[in-house]
Every structure is written in C-alpha cells, then in structure tokens.
C-alpha cells in the first residue's frame, strides 16, 4: 500500500484504438452487454411452455414489471412500447452495478509508474455512461410528450403567457426538466462512485471483514439505483403525456 488510496473521478483510459479512447468503464460496459445478450440468446431459445425454475422466476419478474408499467401508464399500448426501454435501463444498470463486486473487477489492472489503472470499472462509476442513459431518458420523455400531446400543447406547458403565475410555473417547469439531466446522471454516478470509494477506504483501514457488510450494502444500493433510474424514467414519461389541465 505504498501508493495509498488512489481515487480517480474519471474512468482510466487503457489505450486508444484508431484514436478512439478505450476506458476501463467502456470495457466493462461491453462485458455487461456480452453477458446480457448471451444470456438473452440462450434463454430466449430455451423457452418452454412448461417453465423451469429460472424461466418461472424471470417470467414472474417480467409479468410483474409489465403489469406495473401498464398500471402507471394506464394503457396497454404505451406499456408495450416502453417496456423494452425501461427494462433495458434497469437490467443494464443492475448488471453493471452488481458485476462491480465480483472478484477481479477493480483489482486486476495495470501500473503506469505508480498509478494503478484497473482493467474493469463499474459502468455507472463513469459519468459518460450515466449521462448517456440520461440523454436517452430525457429525449424519450420530451419526444413522447410532444408526440402524445402535440407540439403546441406540450410547449404551452413551458411558455405560458396567460397569467404571471402561469408564466412562473412555465419557467419552473423548464428548469425542472433541464435539471433532470443533472439529477439523473449525477445521482447514479454519485451513488455508485461513492460506494466504490467507501469500500476502498474501508479496505484501506481494515482489509478483512469490514468491507463485507459494506459490499452487501453497496450491492443493495446498486439494485436500488437501477430501479430508481428505470422508475423515474417511467414516471417522467407518464408526467409528460399527462395533460396538465386534465390532471388536476
């Protein structure tokens, strides 16, 4: 432990391919994708009419999630359209977060002089990943609002010249919408990054035992954050398609 605690706010760049930076977070993202797609491929092909335990559990999860989404949207058609997006957000973040605690992730890496760069880093501990997801959520929310309510009606939510109060509400609406870009991305990044730092610090003080409950807690946080991101996306979509005059 000659180097002490080394905390990097940004994902370490491992190298460049044709000028394209390859960071450890990006590598981990690809690993998560490969795992998820491989699982989906083999699981999707082995679906049976009489389900095994795994299939029954996954079907139970899908059915529950779908029913919940349909209940929030109050529409089966909308639920069908947005289920893939919400489920993918959840699974992508969840698997990335949980994989972070597997042995070797964060501990296997390269030394550049005294600096240590791990080979793998949790995707959500890199702002590029969380911001990308945030953009997807943000644009989905806004585009859905425009598509469902119509451009003029949706714009009327932000620019309201009928009364001073209405105008102020419109300004607040704009700020809160744009604020999502920051809150979505930094909530996920902050939680996961802070968890990593906390485990790192705890491991520095007491390498055995102390990190164990913290790792358990951080795994829980990882699942919760995946759920929060997916559910907030869903709720904001619902808000954007709800006519403000009908909602009250």
């Amino acid at each position: 432990m000659s180097s002490g605690i080394h905390v990097s706010l940004k994902a370490e760049t491992l190298g460049h391919i044709l000028g394209f930076p390859i960071t450890n977070s990006l590598l981990m993202t690809w690993l998560v994708m490969v795992l998820l797609i491989a699982f989906a491929y083999f699981f999707g092909r082995s679906l049976k009419m009489i389900p095994g335990k795994l299939q029954a559990a996954i079907e139970w999860g899908f059915e529950g999630a779908y029913a919940y989404i349909a209940e929030v949207f109050e529409s089966d058609a909308l639920a069908k359209r947005f289920f893939p997006l919400i489920a993918t957000i959840f699974l992508f973040i969840l698997v990335g977060n949980e994989l972070e605690f597997f042995p070797g992730v964060g501990s296997i890496g390269f030394f550049h002089g005294t600096d240590f760069a791990p080979l793998l880093r949790a995707p959500a501990a890199d702002l590029n990943f969380t911001l990308a997801l945030t953009f997807i959520a943000f644009f989905t929310i806004e585009v859905t609002g425009i598509a469902v309510l119509g451009g003029l009606k949706y714009a009327g939510r932000f620019v309201n010249l009928k009364s001073p109060v209405g105008f102020a509400v419109g300004i607040i609406e704009i700020v809160s919408n744009l604020g999502r870009l920051v809150s979505f991305s930094f909530r996920l990044f902050g939680n996961i990054f802070a968890g990593e730092v906390m485990i790192l610090v705890a491991g520095y003080f007491l390498p055995y035992l102390l990190p164990v409950p913290l790792i358990g807690f951080e795994m829980f946080i990882g699942a919760i954050q995946a759920l929060v991101f997916a559910m907030l996306t869903m709720f904001f979509i619902k808000l954007s398609i709800t006519d403000p005059h009908e909602a009250h």
Binding site: L26, W30, L36, I37, L127, N128, A132
Partner: peptide
C-alpha cells in the same frame, strides 16, 4: 472524464443492448 466519443459509444451501446434484448 467526459468525452464526446465515449458518450456516443455509450449511447450506441445502449441502443444495441435494447434492440438485442
């Protein structure tokens, strides 16, 4: 560590994953 290429890469990653899943 925000870099446009990485951001775009992650956007593409998500799109691929969503379509595949």
């Amino acid at each position: 560590g925000l870099q446009l290429p990485l951001l775009i890469a992650q956007l593409v990653n998500f799109a691929i994953l969503m379509i595949a899943l």
